[in-house]
Nucleic acid binder design. Structure first.
Lengths: 246, 246
DNA sequence: TCCTTCTATTGACATAGATCAAGGTATCAT
DNA sequence: ATGATACCTTGATCTATGTCAATAGAAGGA
């Protein structure tokens, strides 16, 4: 990614169709851009915010990727999701103004900061912005439902296939290859996200690799036979429900 | 519940503090009430709406209870949540105007219908209503996250204890007993919700009963030792994260 | 009241995935 | 380069929970 991503503003941002500006008039996007604060880059393993922080902003991923997770008293974690460019973080804090999860950068990343107070004001003025906010919130909710399905009733193999297909779909939505990409998360993160152990994730990768369905080289994934991958998931899920993670 | 619940309007509704009117001025509540349509009662096993239906409304539970679930190609289901009085259904349809799940009544129940078009208009006019909508959406999202935690990293016993505590908390929020209540859902629904089998749910009930922690008589639950119940969950979850289900 | 059907419990057994343990490979700082 | 540390893979074993099967209890209709 270019070194200047963090200076680009909404009207010029290549992500605008995936992000908040979608469906807005040109002048409305410019209005939105005035309330967006561009932040300095966030480095690997750096936190965007911590569980329990008061949180008066939403954050859009501009480049890179993040992991969100909830920790309990014992320090054990559950990964809630992964965020790729164009996706909105901090929606859980809408309830009380306090974040219920922590968010950490998986690689050097940039975000746009959207102060909630300004955003709410703007929503009252621009109906299509409010509409887009609702759409984004609805999407977050139905994507969470997809995760619930995955965790509740899927085998390890199905979970892995679903995970890969979902990443594939999201990367392709960003204009990247849908069959070749690098994982920005560790095996441990994937395992935790899917409710499995690292060992099981590793074994599943090995098996999918042996079967020729994918080629795994560390973080590098190549999907050789997307049909087979879909077939692993298919018996369990309508095609339009693969839109999730996040 | 009184036989006339479905005629009561927002300003007189005993649920108003749990529902959309929370935080609104008296005259604002009256405005809200004008867009609410009261519907005839919905009977056991009757559907409020079906997965895939175009859905231009939100629905607030007025009395009774509902189960929401997503079905896949094979007809197998995942229960997403249970809805009690004061809770808002249909939020997942905000994304595309199509519901992503089906909702079925667990007993004879009543709902208030809120046309989204009118609601959005009203949100632009009444800032505190918009604020409350955001709060409700944020709550839905963080409650979904709690479910993800539960499904991802909990044993059968922990799931059961969490389930019971959560029901207890929600009933008490409604002004009912927190230690004695009737389940409106079948064992099968609980099992499906928790990602377990009926047999496992049944065995867990039996064990908790034997240990004297609860008394189970069919659908009737009495919590005898809420401390022990919390202790089963405690090692895994901060107290303020028990707010979920829905 | 009896019969049917739906729902819940209990037991015996099988298995997917966890756990434990060891070794390999990449990454990074010195 | 070299060593230290984090990350990943593989194998052997154990166990919680699923599966299959049988029984028992509720609920509802004739």
């Amino acid at each position: 990614m270019e070194s200047n991503v963090h200076k680009i503003s909404c009207p010029d941002c290549r992500l605008s169709d995936l992000c908040l500006p979608y469906g807005l008039q040109k002048n409305e996007v410019q209005q939105l851009a005035t309330i967006v604060k561009n932040k300095r880059p966030i480095h690997t393993d750096e936190y965007l915010y911590l569980q329990g922080d008061t949180c008066q902003n939403l954050y859009a991923v501009k480049s890179g990727s993040f992991r969100s997770f909830i920790a309990d008293d014992n320090g054990s974690e559950q990964t809630i999701g992964f965020y790729l460019p164009g996706e909105l973080m901090g929606l859980d804090a809408l309830q009380h103004g306090r974040s219920t999860c922590s968010i950490v950068a998986l690689e050097t990343s940039t975000v746009c900061e959207l102060p909630l107070s300004h955003l709410n004001e703007l929503c009252s003025q621009i109906p299509s912005l409010q509409h887009q906010m609702m759409r984004i919130l609805g999407k977050e909710i139905s994507s969470d439902h997809d995760k619930i399905i995955m965790l509740g009733h899927r085998s390890a193999k199905e979970k892995m296939a679903t995970f890969l297909l979902m990443l594939s779909r999201r990367y392709s939505g960003l204009g990247f290859s849908s069959t070749e990409f690098n994982l920005s998360m560790r095996r441990q993160d994937i395992a935790n996200f899917l409710g499995l152990t690292v060992e099981t994730v590793s074994r599943q990768f090995t098996e999918l690799n042996k079967d020729g369905i994918i080629t795994v080289k560390q973080r590098g994934i190549q999907i050789n036979d997307i049909t087979s991958l879909k077939a692993i998931v298919k018996p369990c899920m309508p095609d339009d429900q693969l839109s999730f993670i996040a």
